[in-house]
Amino acid sequence: MPTESSPAPPTLRQVGQVLDELYDPSWAADWDAVGLVCGDPDASIARVLFAVDPVGEVVEEAIAWSADLMVAHHPLFLRGVHGVAATTPKGTLVHRMLTRGIALHVCHTNADAAAPGVSDALAAALGLTELRPLDPRPDAPGLGTGRIGSLPRAERLDAFRDRVASALPPTAHGVRVAGDPDRSIATVAVCGGAGDSYLDLVRAVGVDAYVTADLRHHPASEAGQYPAAPALVDVAHWASEWPWLADAAGRLVRALAQRGTTVETRVSTTCTDPWTLHVPSAVPAAGHRDQEGNIH
């Protein structure tokens, strides 16, 4: 409860207005679904939980913390629906949130394009500086998907791999690398989330390494065939976007403070990466086993 000296909490409408200023819905891709998903705009908002995925485990975290609002990066609904009955997993989540008074707001590709946005947070976590968009928006300087930056000093790829692994939250996926471990890395492109659609652009800008998620076999294999191709560092999708949560929470609090109000925020630490186990191959990289188990 607010005291005489503390500001009254904002309404959901006021919080949504700030989020839309920070992450303009017009920046979202035309296929995306961003903004308010459920909740009463006139409801009072005291606690806001930030999370990558609006899934069951995170909803339970929000309930346990008595959150009034969840700000998620990934949409709950990307396709049109004709009902939200509690007969499907997503319908059940909507009912669970609404019966506990929890609203849901999504900032997805509009947060990817923002400055600072998702890729800025990933780049900062890796210690990159002198950032600029990888795929800039032609209508707005500074905005765009992905970032290009520089390390404080060049380092070997195997050391850069360790930098990435220590900067991001652990997952079963881990960090996969394609490239010569001795290669020198000084300039780096990053893209939070799935980024293999930018492989040609990354090669064209001439960076030493590219950090992103969801790299597929064929695009990664083909990219590595070009002369002077950048090293590829593939991380879990959830881990690549998680650093943005704290940045978004801080920006929301500061913007609300300028309006004379505030909220308490929390960043979800629940790992919602879908992969839960990883068993590395026991076969030495220099060979393979035949049907009799002999190494060649």
Rank of each mutant, 00 (worst) to 15 (best):
V58D: 11
H108V: 12
R13D: 12
P9I: 06
T99E: 15
W238R: 07
D20Q: 13
S197V: 13
D42C: 01
E292P: 00
L131Q: 12
T269M: 09
L76W: 06
D208N: 00
G127N: 05
A213P: 13
R176F: 03
I295M: 10
G16H: 02
V188N: 08
V190M: 09
Y23N: 06
S44Q: 13
D112L: 11
P89K: 04
D196W: 03
A159I: 09
Q258C: 11
D68Y: 07
H73N: 14
P169Q: 08
P152C: 11
A204D: 15
L19P: 11
W242M: 09
P54D: 11
R176V: 05
S5A: 11
G193E: 13
V48E: 01
P227Y: 00
D30V: 07
A213Q: 07
E60R: 15
T262H: 00
Q258K: 13
G56V: 07
E21R: 15
Q258M: 08
Q258F: 02
V55A: 15
F160L: 07
A8W: 00
A172I: 07
V48C: 01
T262K: 00
G206A: 01
S268F: 10
A246R: 11
L201K: 15
G174D: 08
A72R: 11
A103W: 01
H74C: 06
L134C: 10
I45N: 04
T261R: 02
P116K: 14
D20A: 14
G142Q: 06
A167P: 07
L245H: 00
A86V: 00
H278M: 06
G206L: 01
V207M: 01
G56S: 13
P9W: 12
D68I: 09
K90G: 02
D200Q: 12
R289D: 00
T109D: 08
A189E: 12
R259E: 04
E292K: 12
G80Q: 06
D135Q: 10
S150A: 15
D158T: 08
A111P: 04
A213K: 13
R216N: 10
D234E: 12
W31V: 07
L168C: 14
G287H: 09
L201G: 02
P227H: 01
S221F: 11
V207L: 05
C107N: 14
R153K: 06
E60A: 07
L168Q: 14
R147C: 06
S184D: 12
D214K: 02
Q291Y: 02
Q291A: 15
H82E: 03
V55M: 06
A28S: 10
A159S: 12
T261E: 03
T145H: 10
A220Q: 00
S197I: 14
A46S: 15
D32W: 11
P138H: 09
L143Q: 13
P25E: 01
V235M: 09
P243E: 05
R137N: 06
N294V: 14
V37Y: 00
D120E: 05
H108S: 10
Y198R: 15
C191I: 10
Q17V: 13
G39R: 03
A229R: 03
D24N: 14
A64V: 05
P54A: 09
A72G: 10
S197E: 13
D162M: 08
Q258A: 15
A113K: 13
A255I: 05
A121M: 04
T99A: 12
G16M: 04
H108I: 13
F77Y: 15
A186R: 15
Q225C: 10
W244A: 14
A114T: 03
A186E: 14
V84M: 11
V52D: 09
